[in-house]
């Protein structure tokens, strides 16, 4: 028989665990989470499930917006040439683009992927869907995006309070690329901010992963359209 734990005690234990993973849950989110779980579930399993759910959630509602875990209110100030945000701050990825390549060249690559083609040097290669019935469009886009994501990348990030800010990958960070999922969570520690833009480097960024399914599919769906529009605008914002 499982040791019965008082709900308040359990919630405290989970909060401690999640906070130690830089993800302090919002009390409302946690009680809703607990209400939907069986009380007999062992603690380690609960911890894992809670962490997984948090990574798949929108942090503006799921995380507690305590000041130590969010970006400073004046983060956008263009007056500040450089400052350090100690953090740890959790942010989620709302958008990502490769600013090392023109939008149009990325549109061309996506269209080649839609035709089921990719190129190796001068050779046009047909991307044939794999035997296990995998969606051909997903294979082709992953092939295409892996080859075209050279970076640096510019990310639109959002903290638990809902503040949106750009992050620029000033040196290549593992797991940051066009292959990453929208809604993925990052933890920032000691991150430099210049003129209101976060400067992302391996030493200041930890990619926790996660994905908000609805956002991701909307992003993927609309990406070609967005790129075409940007290319035609002549300048990106």
């Amino acid at each position: 028989m499982a040791t019965s734990t008082l709900p308040t005690q359990l919630s405290a234990q989970l909060t401690t665990h999640l906070t130690s993973n830089s993800l302090p849950p919002a009390p409302a989110w946690l009680s809703k989470f607990l209400a939907a779980t069986r009380p007999s579930t062992p603690l380690p399993a609960l911890q894992r499930t809670a962490l997984f759910r948090l990574l798949a959630s929108d942090i503006t509602t799921s995380l507690s917006a305590t000041s130590s875990h969010v970006l400073p209110a004046d983060i956008h100030s263009a007056q500040i040439r450089e400052r350090l945000v100690e953090g740890p701050v959790v942010v989620q990825v709302l958008d990502i683009e490769d600013v090392g390549r023109s939008c149009w060249s990325q549109v061309e690559a996506i269209e080649a992927g839609e035709r089921g083609e990719t190129t190796r040097g001068r050779e046009v290669i047909r991307v044939v869907p794999s035997e296990d019935g995998e969606d051909p469009s997903s294979t082709s886009t992953s092939v295409a995006s892996a080859s075209l994501s050279s970076g640096p990348h510019k990310l639109l990030l959002q903290d638990a309070r809902g503040t949106r800010v750009f992050g620029l990958e000033i040196s290549a960070v593992d797991k940051i690329g066009l292959g990453m999922d929208i809604g993925a969570k990052l933890v920032l520690r000691g991150v430099l901010v210049a003129r209101g833009c976060l400067l992302l480097e391996p030493k200041s960024v930890k990619v926790l992963g996660g994905k908000v399914e609805a956002w991701h599919s909307a992003w993927k769906e609309g990406r070609k359209e967005v790129l075409m529009e940007k290319a035609r605008m002549g300048e990106r914002v």
Partner: peptide, 8 residues
């Protein structure tokens, strides 16, 4: 291809 990035 991003002016802000280059300015910074």
């Amino acid at each position: 291809f991003d002016r802000m990035a280059v300015v910074i």
